[in-house]
Computed example of a mutant assay.
Amino acid sequence: MIDTLNQLDIDLFLWLNGRYTPWLDPIMIWITERNSWFPLYALLIGWLIYRYRKQAVGYILTIIFSVAVADQLASSVIKPLTHRLRPCHELSLQKLIHPVLECGGQYGFCSSHASTTFALAASLWLMLGKQHSWLRWGFLWAATVSYSRIYVAAHYPLDVLAGTGVGILSATLCVFVLNKWQTRSEAQKLI
């Protein structure tokens, strides 16, 4: 069963990674680079502060904790436990893949890019999605960043899928803690 699932994952990776075009390479490199998104993060923080004033501190801290938990679960817990090589480190795939960047770390399960971007998107959606339906576009952004990891040959599809789950789970946990804290703070004000 696991061998079959692994082979399906490899086959899907090879198919997706094989759908490259040279003009898309620099775009995918830009999308996959973490530093490319710093202006978006700064804009997001500025918007939260402008729109929510004092509440923004709780929202920003929740996002930071959610992203940090997702990153640490993916990088410091799951990758060392699974030891699944990235496709770009897999010798049997070297002639079949289209690597666009240096390969990076040895292990790829699960994708830290997917976990952190989905943690950010899910945190925003869970905290503010009812008020701002446009925040749903954060999931498309996270999916695009996650797909870029397959495009550059850094991750298999299951690495990305698992990272997505880790990100959404960490966001759900951190937003739950924020909601509990806010409820407790409001109850103490009434006393």
Rank of each mutant, 00 (worst) to 15 (best):
W134G: 08
S148F: 03
A42S: 07
I60T: 10
V175W: 06
V67T: 14
I2T: 05
Y41K: 00
S92K: 02
W15L: 13
Y50G: 09
L128F: 04
E186G: 01
F109H: 01
E33G: 01
T183D: 15
T62K: 04
W134E: 12
P99F: 01
V77I: 04
Y156I: 05
R184S: 14
T82R: 06
I78R: 08
V152H: 02
V57W: 11
H89C: 10
T62H: 13
I150A: 07
R136W: 03
W137K: 01
F13T: 00
Y41S: 02
Y20A: 01
L93P: 00
S146P: 11
L126D: 01
I31S: 14
F38K: 05
K130V: 03
E33A: 01
C88F: 13
P26T: 14
R51Q: 02
Y59G: 12
L73Q: 12
S170Q: 09
Q106R: 01
A162I: 03
M1P: 01
L158H: 10
A153K: 11
T144G: 06
H83V: 02
I63G: 00
S92C: 06
R86K: 01
H113R: 06
R19A: 13
F176P: 04
Y147H: 11
G129Y: 14
A119N: 09
C174H: 03
Q106G: 06
L5V: 08
V77W: 01
D3P: 07
P99K: 07
A119R: 04
L5E: 13
T82S: 12
A121S: 11
L124A: 09
C174A: 15
L61I: 14
A143S: 06
G163N: 13
A162C: 15
L16A: 14
L12N: 10
E90P: 03
W141A: 02
V145N: 09
I168N: 07
M1I: 12
S115K: 12
P87F: 02
G104D: 02
G46I: 04
P99C: 06
L128S: 06
S170D: 14
S148P: 12
I27F: 04
Y52P: 07
S185M: 03
G165R: 05
S66K: 03
S185L: 11
Y41T: 00
R51G: 11
T21D: 12
W125F: 15
K180Q: 15
A143P: 05
M28A: 09
G104Q: 05
Y156N: 08
N17T: 08
L128C: 04
Q94I: 03
E33H: 03
I10W: 11
I97F: 11
S170L: 06
V145G: 13
A122S: 13
I49Q: 04
S112N: 03
A119S: 14
K189I: 11
F176G: 07
I10G: 04
I31H: 13
W37M: 10
L85W: 10
T164E: 12
Q72P: 01
K180H: 14
D9M: 12
W125H: 15
V69Y: 00
V166T: 10
N179F: 10
V145L: 13
L8T: 07
V100T: 02
L48G: 00
I29P: 03
L8K: 00
T21E: 07
P99I: 05
V175F: 02
P26K: 11
Y52D: 13
P157A: 11
A121R: 07
I10Y: 07
S111W: 09
A121W: 08
C103E: 05
R149S: 12
P39E: 10
L140T: 10
N6Y: 14
D9W: 13
Q106I: 12
T82C: 08
